[in-house]
Amino acid sequence: MAPQPQHTLLDIRNLHLRLPSPKGELHLLNDISLTLERGRTLGIVGESGAGKSMLIRAIMGLASRKARISGEIRFDGDTITGMPEARRRRLLGARVGVVFQNPTASLNAFERVGPQVSEAARVHRGISAEEARELAISLLERVGIPDAASCHDRYPHEFSGGMKQRIMIASALAIEPDLLIADEATTALDVTVQKEILDLLQILQAETGMGMIQVTHNLGVVAGRTDEVAVMYGGRLVETGPTRAVFEAPGHQYTQRLIAAVPSLQAPIDQELVSIPGQPPDRLIGIRACPFAPRCAAATPLCSETMPVLAPAGDDGHKAACHHPPRVPAQTLEGAR
């Protein structure tokens, strides 16, 4: 079923990002095409350096000024690539909220919590001081900060890491975003706090109907919490599709190895943890082979000669770029949840 254009919140087509470096040009994003429908959740997974955060930066217009970007990004129908910087900044700033990895570093330690929460609404909507205070307190309540009114005037260092991340979420919600991007938002938190924050995000999304992107290297964050998943490797999209389909029948060797590498509590205690040997690819050169081939157990000469393209790997738009898709279904993700 072809998605109706007016419901597409984010539409990325053939996005490339090159960054000049002293050693040569880095190919950080290669031919990325993705869509996110209004009110849906997309998980972007991959190892560190796969290009997940760079993709978010490219969407938000936060990539280095030296970066060369080609391709098209449309947000709710507006083409934001090539848009004058100030216009793009205001458009996205007023409609997209981002929650980053490290809440302690992401909050301004010198400012009180409340004004930081309402800041985006003050800047983009010009609300009054009293309105800002009310808004901040109601948002702090909404993200589960106890005694929100008295927390309004406290400083970030007076809160725990989990509370700070709740405050960051509240500050991202101030503009009632159409899209919320959680960029490794739970990575720096305790496991129990991680779950609380993920649950909170899920509840907030259900309440507001905003679209959400979960960027993570943790498959457990994505499984069961996202509608779709996009797997990135070496600055490329190697697999994309409905989360359930991707986890149950991965269409790419890399995805399967990634799922197999998730430790399971059900596994015998002496079972060795699975890892993927080797290093992610050097991004200096635009390669013509499968980027995963050097680390792939199923690789054949074909893999190092021809770049596999994203091709249908199942129903509902499940696609993978693999010459030798895994036949065996991957283990279920019990342990990852």
Partner: peptide
């Protein structure tokens, strides 16, 4: 990092300098 989150909120560089960098 808090400058990156200010940028993600779409604030202008001038605003960020006065409100988030100076103090």
């Amino acid at each position: 990092d808090f400058i990156a989150s200010a940028r993600a909120k779409g604030f202008s560089t001038r605003y960020i300098l006065w409100h988030h960098v100076l103090r």
